[in-house]
Design a protein around this nucleic acid. Sequence first.
DNA 1: CCAATAGTGTCTGTCAGACAATATTGC
DNA 2: GCAATATTGTCTGACAGACACTATTGG
Lengths: 261, 261
Amino acid sequence: MARDPHDQRGRPGFRVPDGDAGKVFPNFAVTVDCVLVVMDNGLPHVVLTKRQLDPFADEWGLPGGFKRVDETLDEAITRQLYEKAGIRLKVAPRQLGAFGNPNRDPRPNVVTVVFLALTRSAPKWFPGRNVTAVDMFPLDDVANGEVETAFDHRVLVEQARQAIADRLELEPLVIDLLPPAFTLSELCSVYESFWRVRLDQSNVRRALLRPSRPYLETTGERVSSSDRGRPPEIFRPTSNWREGPPPIRFPRGQSSLSSWD
Amino acid sequence: MARDPHDQRGRPGFRVPDGDAGKVFPNFAVTVDCVLVVMDNGLPHVVLTKRQLDPFADEWGLPGGFKRVDETLDEAITRQLYEKAGIRLKVAPRQLGAFGNPNRDPRPNVVTVVFLALTRSAPKWFPGRNVTAVDMFPLDDVANGEVETAFDHRVLVEQARQAIADRLELEPLVIDLLPPAFTLSELCSVYESFWRVRLDQSNVRRALLRPSRPYLETTGERVSSSDRGRPPEIFRPTSNWREGPPPIRFPRGQSSLSSWD
DNA sequence: CCAATAGTGTCTGTCAGACAATATTGC
DNA sequence: GCAATATTGTCTGACAGACACTATTGG
């Protein structure tokens, strides 16, 4: 090792606060933001808020705000969703990542923890304090930059999409993104949206209705008013969805579209 | 909706700082910790440090410390690994999660961002400021609590193991955990450690040496001094590892041991 | 010789992907 | 009938899992 780790040359004026017997240096503001993904009309959407004041300057951005000292991160995001957008979620948001680049937010010393939450239908919302509007936008439009968003929120949304795509293969996430009963087409389109592939519906059907381990059971009903075409059957997930391994895996043949590159 | 979102009853004295035109409330100290997983002797280990001062009270814990205002989170963890443990990593740590429970750290208002880094061999280390010792321990011993660790660091290590297990199926992570050339047994044991399953080595061989898409090529060499048994061949990964889909997937038959429960 | 590990070959049932053929609806 | 969608059926090659068998080493 060429250099003594205690050697602080090249870092003029540097002093390490850590280790000072319980002392704390409260230099940071911590904010929590949420990428709230809502399935609507079979397509993933993202809920954004428009805020009046700096540094948001009337741009669409992820709902969120400052964490308080006496609450956990989970409590903070739950509270912020309600205060900024009037949204009460039934599911707990999970973390997507933390961001602490000093140049990210125009304000210095801000560290942001970004959450990800999924709901199968649009929740009720309500513009909260300093929020002029709440609305949802197709996820792809936001990820592609067709909707102008503040800071790096566009990138965060794309990261959220990728995280969901990854977890679809590892967890029974799909049924959280669908109503309690649904058609095969609806189910396929969830995978197709997040994986950006086409699935053969007849093969999906076979995988899910396999007699030895059925992941779906029919409700006996059919969709009443389909615009055109044969009205599809309506299915309900069985307990195998939550207990067994996820039945649909990312198609191996079409690798170019996915995450290993 | 029964309650106006602006109604603040039940939260006496509460005031929202957000939205105040660029004002920032620096209430928090931000720390970064790293779960550094090192393959040694074919087994995953974790590097821990022992610190003198409160609140670490001579317990083993993850290396880490305070983030500074003028650096990113990535820079902070890189710096802390060097200052606390003298470790220079060749790979960038990735995030595992953020923790902000007010009761987690005995010090109030601390938010911790935990990173995860992988290396294929033990790095050089050196006890840094206020650190009395640096050492590595078998990951399983730490995750099982056989090694006494500070705060919730035991849980963080177990989360790291699960995160690696998940990513093994999605990314060419294995070759980052192995030396540039290795035997089939060594490769199998990486999967086996993180997935907690047994793989049939002959089937793994077939999957990796498939003529249509070989993931391994032989170096022509063999291990010289094997304690007993036939000396194994030494392989080198081909470019297919980084370009194609990961060739080994979690075995579906043995679901009970894994992550969907 | 035995124990231990590596490597080869093979069998079998399952599965993925493609796609043809039929069914049912609105127009 | 036509377009569109759903559903059933089928064919084929790939693959996973199991396992028997052979090879090569140290003792």
